[in-house]
Amino acid sequence: MEIGLTHYIIVSALLFALGLYGIVSRKHAVMVLMGLELILNAANINFVAFARFGGMNIEGHIAAIFVIILAAAEAAVALAILLNIYQHFRHVNVDEVDQLKE
């Protein structure tokens, strides 16, 4: 069978499910971030697959580039926040971080 659109979007669906599992099943905040990166990559595979097979052409690539830009900005700010959480609580378990003020 020829490799077509369906193959790529099924890979992206499975990658999305893996990322979702990483987000909902882990306590460590960096692990949650990694699950988020997997989900963003799954979305990007979809964009590029539709760019080739679904007639999106170069627009799909542009959308994927903006997703990468947002992922970079998000990772930087999220890790800065995590460093602050670690300095305050001495851990980064998301279910035990329950105070907003010091």
Binding site: G4, L5, I10, A13, L18, L20, Y21, R52, G54, G55
Partner: peptide, 27 residues
């Protein structure tokens, strides 16, 4: 709960993606 939730999500996505008749216009 996490395993059930994500496997349901994965099954749903895979079934929907493989059943849908996508608009194809190969560049």
């Amino acid at each position: 709960g996490a395993i059930v939730f994500t496997s349901l999500m994965a099954i749903t996505l895979v079934v929907v993606f493989s059943q849908t008749n996508w608009y194809q216009a190969e560049a």
